[in-house]
Design a protein around this nucleic acid. Structure first.
Lengths: 220, 220, 220, 220
DNA sequence: CATGAATGAGCATTCATTCAT
DNA sequence: TATGAATGAATGCTCATTCAT
């Protein structure tokens, strides 16, 4: 049994290393500059090994994206207050996403290229894991019903609310901007203001949760 | 003299056809699925001709991006009210960009992939033609001074304000959303709300200018 | 009539320029580095013009070689003493060839590459213009009959006698050696010694004829 | 261990086959007529394999030349009498070279084209492996000191002595001449006569060693 | 005659994928 | 499982040649 576990571990170790390598290489060199051989090298694994863990290159990329998605989701959900009001839940989500990608800018850069490219068609729309789409649209619908959000279809609200967040994270990942906690809070407010009927209330201090994401599990 | 002009035109005809083809092919198939031979085929031009007009594939992409940038800028500036107040000028710009990319969704998809990829490093940051960056940052600074915008560095304001717009345009280009004039106006408001001290005033009707962009000149 | 002459001249001017350019470019960059376009550029002529004067690239090279051959032959024959004895005629020829290629090292480098390559098959063997082969073999036969040369077939004698000359000229053209008149004379002696029954007599001074070749006609 | 050795061998097998193929193809078709794909085909290897063993086409040619050089040197040195007098050592070297290239005329044709072309700049001058240049120049210096050779710089002597040999080998390789042992001996004498103070002594018979080179090792 | 933009076959090189070890 | 040499289809680019002006 121990042997099996170890094997299992080995299995995952190489698989994870490959996913991590794929993300890093694509983030820094683009899909252009990411030959399988190079990724394998970065992962310190033989080329052939890639094909033991992934059907082909496309599946490596796809699986990398899905792993990233799961990891991000897990991180964001860590502190999610299921019973909070719309505003609290919204802030928690937005904060979580921003902090996650602040910590892992390469993952943002990977995801960004992935979703801009035709790979996008292979995953569910709206950058959300399969199951989550309905949940999030439901969240916006509820906000509209409660009169908190502007009266628009949830898909519009999602796009409008994500916008400021994504652009700010991109500017950070690209090095055009540095995101401190102050700016992160401001960004969350902007996301809120973009879709809320009433402007976000003035904030006093900012609760820090920065280090949290560091305890995340490795890629699945 | 007529002959010369005609030649001039022919010259540009091939160059433009190639740029147009590059945009279309990359938009639909990604950089992955955009071999020079295929692009040349779409442009109805021989492979060798590509290298008569562009140094190499990278320069074709770069020049395509720059042409797109110019064309978009020209379109947006068509109705720009230089003497309007901040709000009027902001709306004009945002409206212009959204309407342009609504008309030319492939250009958005091209630009999006281009800017997500390492190609980004080859052009000025913040998706703006070289000269325009200062002008736009200056615009935001003025808004802050006048107390119209939230007190933040212009780079932050730019990112926050562009966010909703970009995400909505992407959702449209990808087919996840249809952008009618009503939604366009709502999006402009969201962009405004994301960075303004006061929420955008309620609007009555929307002036249509849809067809205008159709008279744009071909690529330079 | 004057117009015709002028045309004739123009004709030849471009043709000569192209041959000259071909020789220079091939000498310095090899056949590898000698695209038609580059040669045309060096000759300050449009690409298309090449095909007005030469059937194709191979014929340009062939014609260049033949022109070179003729020019060299003319230069060598300038001071040839038809009534001299074997030794005098031999020295005149050898001296002539060495001095010619000392003056025009690029022509040597061109000819050398030309004759080493399969182009060789297109011209008569033994680096000699069509008509000259028999004459020169006849010369060696006579030398053998007179007991001046070692008893060997003329083709062997030709190869043996040319050897030192060619190697020395190559070393000069390549910059491995500088050929002054003293060394040229020594080389002629070596060529003689390689095939003669008796060693070349000790020489006193050396007659100079260096500048002569400068008055050569342009390429035909 | 055996497995490793076998692998080692396989490695070299492809490498050697490619070098051999490069030499054959270039000898017969020139650098012009030697596309990588064709060479790979002759070597019965896939195109991609070439780039597993050589950086690029230029390096294949360079490595082929160097292998040829080593192989020739090894063959020539097989019977070299280090303690013989100048004349004996000279004859041994000249004989060795001629016999080697008589056996492997394609190698001569390859080397000839290689050294005539700008590739020449990539290897040491005077067609000699890096370390050997000094040794051979030293040999000529000694000959001059002993009063055996004409009083000239060793570089001149080298060129003069090699001349007859090279031209005769070329004539043989090209099919203009057939080199039997008699003619080979005559050639060696001519090389000697070209640079010696006294003519080569009349010879009686010729020792045959023809087959020897056949036992040479494959390319390194 | 002269031009040089346009052509497209041909070439060097890369890289996803396989398979013998 | 893991390896990495081998493969060959696919790609970017070149260049001899043509032809409309």
């Amino acid at each position: 049994m121990k042997i099996i576990e170890e094997k299992q571990y080995m299995d995952n170790a190489k698989r994870c290393a490959l996913i991590e390598a794929a993300i890093q290489v694509v983030a820094h060199h683009g899909f252009h500059g990411a030959p399988i051989g190079f990724i394998a090298g970065v992962a310190k694994v033989a080329v052939g090994t890639v094909y033991l863990h992934f059907e082909d290159k496309d599946h490596l990329m796809l699986d990398a994206y899905r792993a990233l998605e799961q990891r991000c989701l897990a991180a964001v959900m860590q502190n999610y207050p299921p019973r909070g009001d719309i505003r609290q839940r919204f802030s928690s989500l937005a904060l979580g996403v921003i902090r996650y990608f602040k910590l892992f800018p390469e993952e943002f850069l990977f995801a960004d290229q992935f979703l801009s490219s035709p790979y996008r068609k292979a995953v569910s729309p709206n950058y959300l894991p399969d199951g989550e789409v309905e949940r999030i649209l439901q969240f916006f619908s509820q906000g509209v019903e409660e009169g908190v959000f502007k009266a628009m279809p949830p898909t519009m609200l999602l796009a409008l609310a994500c916008g400021p967040l994504i652009e700010v994270v991109r500017a950070h990942a690209v090095g055009f901007l540095y995101l401190d906690e102050e700016r992160i809070a401001r960004t969350v407010d902007s996301c809120w203001d973009a879709i809320a009927q009433e402007k976000a209330p003035a904030r006093a201090g900012v609760a820090t949760a920065e280090g949290d994401a560091a305890q995340l599990p490795a890629f699945a």
